[in-house]
Design a protein around this nucleic acid. Structure first.
Lengths: 269, 269
DNA sequence: CATCAATGGTCTGACATTAGCCCAATAACA
DNA sequence: TGTTATTGGGCTAATGTCAGACCATTGATG
């Protein structure tokens, strides 16, 4: 049925290595990338100039421009010509409502969601573990320890508008501090796969406080050089979100707790 | 200097998301994939028919044939026409010698090697952790427990010719049993990045016994549902190989133990 | 020995992607 | 108010990649 099934009873390793070489054409992949960068809020208010961006993405300017045009027509960008012009981000994360979350989860297949959550759990736990082991070996310099503390302080001091972005920065910071680009990329990729879902979860003060305590625990374990505790802290932290999202999988139609309100009371219908 | 550097002092997240969309053209990526599949020994003695293989890799038959021709000219494949024909693997892992290992490590940059080792450590520890957590939750069925035990038994019973292949199968099996294709792919990718290096390490009886004990510990921890112990066991196991390989990094020129021989006796001068 | 099914070998027309070049618009700045 | 550097907009020729059809070869099988 699906492309990935391969022959019945065939080695999973074979289907893993003989999987498609490219996810799609250059245009599609570029749109996806830019959309991720925009939604994660890591490109600032303006994209880099086309020539520079094309070089970075390893594609031609023509292909990049097609992607930008698609995003412009979809309302994510506002393109202005001339000096000091550029592609300006006009996207703001939607005011989250439960109905949005239900829809976001539904848009993603059941298998795809559990896959993404499992993947994220594994790579983020692994990254924290590695970083703690580095600290344990006394190879985590004061500079890097400082950056970790700084990121933690930033997310703790974040206002509602900046929370998602700084939370992302904190999580990815752990992977980046390991010094492994491959690992950093994997963690970024894992995060990107659940960005839409996270954006659809309302930011509640209670959740923020809960997350803050967990973030503290992660940093403490890493700096203390305790790999097990670090991985465990990350796992606990991620499990909360994962459980929430998985809850929407068991309810293909509207969750019972929302049926009365969400039908007409949700901000976005 | 390098493509990946980005602007000085720029957010690492930016350079991560704005990295090249494709690693190379379709031909190059296909050659790389096939080569990996061959070196890992997971394609058996013959590649699937061109039409099927092209469909799996998501490329055209023309591009696939170019890749096969390149591998044929490089001596990895023997292509025969007619029914019962096909592309037959004519590759055998080289008899490992210390000089091969030194060269293999040197071919890979210092940074690239530590990157690959760190990445592998993180994703494999993460996978074992997730799988153990699944077992802890009582969600690891008897079928999957049985497969894990079976893989372990297979690698323990392996002869020298099959050892690498079955060792790979065991390691990847852990990731596959989590049920997350993304995670399985990440682990396979991590393994692939060090395949050449592993192939260059002599298979010593002493190492095999050591590895066997560690494999046992991993399986025991996973089946016992102890995530910390599982991750720790994997970390210990991988650290041995990593330390060995890293040892060759500290010696940019030829290792002392080889200087007399390698100076004029090396096959390639 | 003839048949035949499976497989690699080849060709064509269409579309995707690229590099490179020049044009057009714009806002800071003198 | 004109200049100018920077940026997006658009073009062309060359190359990469594709789907699909058809040909050539081979070895098992009857």
């Amino acid at each position: 049925m699906s492309i990935a099934e391969g022959k019945l009873g065939e080695s999973p390793r074979l289907t893993t290595v003989l999987r498609p070489v490219r996810a799609g054409n250059a245009f599609e992949e570029t749109v996806e990338r830019l959309l991720q960068a925009i939604k994660l809020g890591i490109v600032g208010e303006k994209l880099p100039p086309e020539r520079e961006l094309a070089a970075r993405l390893g594609i031609s300017r023509v292909t990049l421009r097609e992607a930008i045009r698609a995003l412009q027509e979809a309302g994510y960008l506002d393109v202005r010509r001339g000096r000091y012009g550029g592609a300006f981000v006009t996207y703001a994360p939607p005011e989250p409502g439960s109905e949005d979350l239900r829809r976001a989860v539904a848009d993603m297949g059941t298998g795809e969601l559990t896959d993404a959550l499992t993947f994220r759990m594994a790579v983020e736990c692994g990254a924290a573990r590695v970083l703690a082991a580095t600290a344990l070996a006394g190879e985590l310099g004061e500079e890097r320890r400082g950056e970790l503390r700084r990121r933690l302080a930033e997310v703790n001091a974040a206002g509602p508008d900046d929370y998602r972005r700084l939370d992302t920065a904190f999580h990815l910071c752990i992977a980046e501090l390991t010094g492994s680009p491959l690992l950093a990329t994997a963690c970024a990729d894992a995060r990107l796969r659940v960005t839409d879902l996270l954006n659809a979860i309302p930011i509640l003060q209670r959740n923020i406080e809960h997350a803050a305590a967990q973030h503290e625990a992660i940093v403490a374990a890493v700096l203390a050089g305790d790999p097990d505790a670090a991985a465990r802290a990350v796992a606990e932290h991620l499990e909360g979100t994962a459980a929430l999202l998985r809850g929407f999988l068991a309810q293909p139609s509207r969750p019972a707790v929302l049926t009365t309100e969400a039908g007409h009371g949700a901000p976005r219908g």
